[in-house]
Amino acid sequence: MKRTLFRQRALAYLLIAPQLAVTAIFFLWPTGQAIVQSFQQEDAFGLHTSWVGLANYRALFSDPTYIQALGVTVVFTVAVTLSALVVALLLALAVDRLVRSATVYTTLLVWPYAVAPAVVGVLWWFLFNPTIGPLPYVLEQMGYQWDHSLHGTDAMILVVIAAAWPQVSYNFLFFVAGLQSIPASMREAAAIDGAGPAKRFFTITLPLLSPTTFFLAVVNLVYAMFNTFPVIHATTQGGPAGATDILVFKVYQDGFVALNLGSSAAQSVVLLVIVIALTAIQFGWMERRVQY
């Protein structure tokens, strides 16, 4: 990036002031509030606030529903990331083989990404709706009784599909670009060196794609953990019995629906710590592990 030198410092600050203001009002201030609130407790009428130290955190980690939400989040996040990556890679490989400049396919496969997450959620909710949706009907013909409002596994599958769906197109683009940047001669040399298609994929293509894969894995993890609120909200509302109650959704439930602000704030702080940790891992690894 180009560095521009401003003679007047005041002008420079003036120019970034709006951005700073937005960051301060919508990020720093609420974050500070959350941290403060996580050490406080309000009485039932909201008239009196008292400092309670780590009580909110202690309550949180001894709450079975929170522990369940942690487990659900891990399963959900890993499932979304893996399925979004694998499906996108398979599509990218197919396109890469098909034509080197498959603009039609690429354009088509990007569309899901342009659809708002809540709409995606409603769409899948409809497709899988036990009474009016087409997919449960098909599944029933095959002898499976689909009902995501009763079965926790069905609900999890539904939210994973709904959440992974838009990510596939995003990942696909990166994988196609990554595959195109591997010189054809590399695969040809491996073919002459006696490696079959499967071996070529695992010993040449996949390792050469590893920077792309790692980058996408982190992006998808963060997405599944923090940006899937609308999907859950529009489909399962965290149910049945908390089977799809991921951490982000629980913050909202406990804070805005149950109005337990202290616990909700503590949960936000835990999430904040997770984001920071993920970011640190990403930067640390990007530098060392995934290069050749």
């Binding site: 010189p183 590399m186 073919a191 006696g194 040449i204």
Partner: peptide, 30 residues
């Protein structure tokens, strides 16, 4: 016949060395 079965070796203009393998692994791969 597949390239691998033709009993030939090829040297490419851009060398096409496998960047994630050491020189020894590059030589041993085939």
């Amino acid at each position: 016949v597949e390239p691998a079965e033709r009993d030939i070796a090829m040297v490419f203009q851009n060398y096409a060395l496998y960047p994630h393998m050491t020189v020894r692994q590059n030589l041993a791969y085939g």
